[in-house]
Design a protein around this nucleic acid. Structure first.
Length: 245
DNA sequence: TGGAATGTTGGAAC
DNA sequence: CGTTCCAACATTCC
């Protein structure tokens, strides 16, 4: 469910609820006071990386779907909702097994919009300079660093590294600048490609590396390892993905 | 059927 | 006190 592009799909799916008044708020989250939502209007829906943000006049509700989070629009699951918002005419938004928190500061103080790969304010140069400040970091870790690439998850990581021919355990500081620029650019391109394929329900079909056993370029077995400090699984080809070290 | 997975956090350990 | 590391959370799929 929850890499950045999937959160964009969620944001687009609930867009018509903008401006609507919450009639009642319920759920099993212990982090928020439901009564403060009731009777207030949603000003806007936003997202930052994997964070889904519901703006109310005086505060924001942040929803993070983590690994297993789901939602339903004008429908319910059998399991209890973490947060359930109901509106006039029986309309409702339901969120399950997610993290729900309240943000009281202005969002511009909380979020660096230029770090969100899906945001129009995304800034490749900024990402590049952050990478340069962490020369010892493995690139598989850097790609998952939400301060640099907010919204990138393990699927995007594996796909982008394969597409740019970079070994996941390469050191950020050892990758030539031109190659690093290519990586940053490809991360954004693939994230939007992910968005389109996800909307078409053809995302998995287009995976070249993630969960794959054979390299489609060299037709030899992929390596699978739990690499970096993040210890997330990496799928890569030792022949066509260069290790910079 | 048990184990692993598109992820993050809080607190223990040092 | 700062940093690091790992258990915990919880659902779905194979």
């Amino acid at each position: 469910m929850p890499e950045g592009p999937s959160i964009v799909i969620l944001r687009e799916a609930v867009h018509s609820f903008t401006g609507k008044k919450v009639i009642s708020a319920k759920g099993n989250t212990k982090n928020i006071d439901f009564t403060q939502l009731e009777g207030t209007k949603i000003i806007a829906f936003k997202s930052w990386g994997k964070h889904f943000l519901i703006r109310f006049p005086k505060f924001t509700i942040r929803i993070h779907l983590l690994l297993f989070g789901t939602y339903r629009i004008n429908e319910r699951k059998d399991s209890p909702a973490r947060l359930s918002l109901t509106f006039a005419k029986g309309e409702e938004l339901n969120f399950y097994t997610c993290s729900v928190t309240r943000i009281d500061q202005p969002l511009d103080e909380v979020y660096d919009w230029s770090a969100d790969v899906m945001n129009e304010q995304w800034d490749s140069k900024s990402a590049l300079s952050k990478l340069k400040k962490q020369p010892a970091a493995l690139i598989c870790d850097a790609l998952l660093d939400q301060h640099i690439f907010a919204g990138v998850g393990n699927i995007i990581k594996n796909e982008v590294l394969f597409r740019t021919h970079i070994h996941p355990e390469s050191k950020a500081g050892k990758i030539p600048l031109a190659k690093l620029k290519q990586l940053v650019n490809e991360t954004v391109i693939y994230s939007f490609q992910f968005l389109e394929w996800k909307k078409e329900f053809t995302l998995k079909k287009h995976w070249l590396a993630h969960t794959k056993k054979i390299c489609p370029r060299d037709h030899i077995p992929f390596k699978k390892s739990y690499s970096g400090i993040t210890r997330r699984r990496s799928f890569y080809c030792e022949v066509c993905q260069k290790l910079y070290r």
